[in-house]
Simulated scan of single mutants.
Amino acid sequence: MNATKRPPLSPGDRVIGKWSRQEWTVQAQLGVGANGAVYSVRGTDGALYAMKVCDDVGAVAFEWGLLEQLNATGFAFPKPHCIDDSATHPALYFYVMEQIEGRPLDQIWKKLSSDDMKRVLLGVGYGLRALHKSQHAFCDVKPQNLLVDVQSNQCVRFVDVGGVTPFGRSVRQFTPTSDPAYWGFGERRACARYDIEAVALMVATLFEPVPQGLPQWPVERRQAWILRSIRGRHDKSVGALLEDAMRGRIDTADEFVRRLYALKLRPTGFPKRSAAKAQTRASRSAAAPGNGRRPAPSQPRPQQRSAKARKRSADWTERLMWWALTCAVISTAGAWAEYLR
């Protein structure tokens, strides 16, 4: 939902900074948040940037200050570029930052292997660990706010700084399905545990989409559904990690990373069934008797070799024995001749 009061910018629109006099040309809209929209823009230097546009100058100043602070403590969030007012659009306040390359997590999750899923979650853990050192929580954890660069070893970057909240304060922005309070697992208060719980809930709903009508369910029924979903996973270590995280048993991003590293995943540790397994089962079913097809002929066992093959083997063994005996006689005769000389 577009929370801005003004009509969106269109590709080709030019935004000129009132104070910096820098110029940017809008390429496309990247997304809409609770307090503004984000656009892909091209600067006069030819580079692409992301521009966050708001109607409220206070929101722009707040997010810009957070972005500068977070950039000094970690690498997960975009690098800030500049902040300004628009000279070409009245009452348009914006800041420009690095445009993050990658795709939202929900668009690629089911295409990832078990190892890649683990690598992505480790990237999320590292990003949260750096963020938490600044005494801030991400809070608005959702797949659309986590971009994965599949061309760069599943590198994970965070976007949308609008939900970042200092530890101890009430969460200002959140996504219900990633909110521990929505599921009855915890309070809606910013802390490291809140982010870890939110990540586990997000992963659980990436594995299995939430049913229709979930918002109308009582909290107890929601909780029972998501616990049943993760406990039914064939890899119990993954289910145990997710349950411990969403129940608040993992207090820090460091502990979350350590638990991820300790996972000994089978090739299909995250997905429920791989295509390879399905194909193997289908092949076995096709070869089974009684399905209208003849089973593939079995290979002959060693004891089922023909008499001709056994005879060839015996002849070769006999020739080898006589060759060895002849060599021994020649060697013995040579030794006696040398001794009697």
Results as ranks from 00 to 15, higher is better:
residue 58 G to L: 14
residue 58 G to W: 14
residue 58 G to E: 15
residue 58 G to P: 15
residue 59 A to W: 06
residue 59 A to G: 02
residue 59 A to L: 03
residue 59 A to Q: 02
residue 59 A to N: 07
residue 60 V to C: 09
residue 60 V to A: 14
residue 61 A to V: 12
residue 61 A to R: 06
residue 61 A to I: 11
residue 62 F to W: 12
residue 63 E to G: 02
residue 63 E to M: 00
residue 63 E to N: 01
residue 63 E to S: 02
residue 64 W to K: 01
residue 64 W to F: 05
residue 65 G to V: 08
residue 65 G to M: 01
residue 65 G to H: 00
residue 65 G to D: 02
residue 65 G to R: 04
residue 66 L to D: 08
residue 66 L to I: 11
residue 67 L to P: 00
residue 68 E to R: 04
residue 68 E to W: 00
residue 70 L to N: 02
residue 70 L to V: 07
residue 70 L to C: 04
residue 72 A to Y: 10
residue 72 A to Q: 11
residue 72 A to R: 08
residue 72 A to M: 08
residue 73 T to N: 09
residue 73 T to S: 13
residue 74 G to R: 01
residue 75 F to R: 07
residue 75 F to D: 09
residue 76 A to Q: 02
residue 76 A to N: 01
residue 77 F to T: 07
residue 77 F to D: 04
residue 77 F to Y: 06
residue 78 P to S: 06
residue 79 K to W: 07
residue 79 K to E: 03
residue 80 P to M: 03
residue 80 P to G: 06
residue 81 H to D: 07
residue 81 H to G: 14
residue 82 C to P: 11
residue 82 C to A: 15
residue 83 I to C: 04
residue 84 D to Q: 00
residue 84 D to N: 02
residue 85 D to C: 13
residue 85 D to N: 12
residue 86 S to N: 08
residue 87 A to Q: 09
residue 87 A to R: 11
residue 88 T to P: 03
residue 88 T to A: 07
residue 89 H to N: 13
residue 89 H to K: 13
residue 89 H to R: 15
residue 89 H to S: 12
residue 89 H to C: 13
residue 90 P to S: 03
residue 90 P to K: 07
residue 91 A to L: 13
residue 91 A to W: 12
residue 91 A to V: 15
residue 91 A to M: 13
residue 91 A to T: 14
residue 92 L to S: 02
residue 93 Y to K: 06
residue 93 Y to D: 08
residue 93 Y to V: 15
residue 94 F to Y: 10
residue 95 Y to H: 05
residue 95 Y to S: 03
residue 101 E to M: 12
residue 101 E to P: 12
residue 103 R to V: 12
residue 103 R to D: 13
residue 103 R to G: 15
residue 104 P to V: 09
residue 104 P to H: 03
residue 105 L to S: 02
residue 105 L to V: 10
residue 105 L to P: 03
residue 106 D to K: 02
residue 106 D to A: 04
residue 106 D to I: 11
residue 106 D to M: 06
residue 108 I to T: 14
residue 109 W to F: 07
residue 112 L to Q: 08
residue 112 L to T: 14
residue 112 L to A: 13
residue 112 L to K: 11
residue 112 L to S: 14
residue 113 S to Y: 00
residue 115 D to H: 12
residue 115 D to S: 11
residue 115 D to I: 13
residue 116 D to C: 09
residue 117 M to G: 05
residue 117 M to K: 00
residue 117 M to T: 15
residue 118 K to M: 06
residue 118 K to A: 06
residue 119 R to Q: 08
residue 119 R to M: 07
residue 119 R to P: 09
residue 120 V to I: 02
residue 120 V to T: 00
residue 122 L to R: 08
residue 123 G to L: 00
residue 123 G to I: 01
residue 124 V to C: 06
residue 124 V to Y: 02
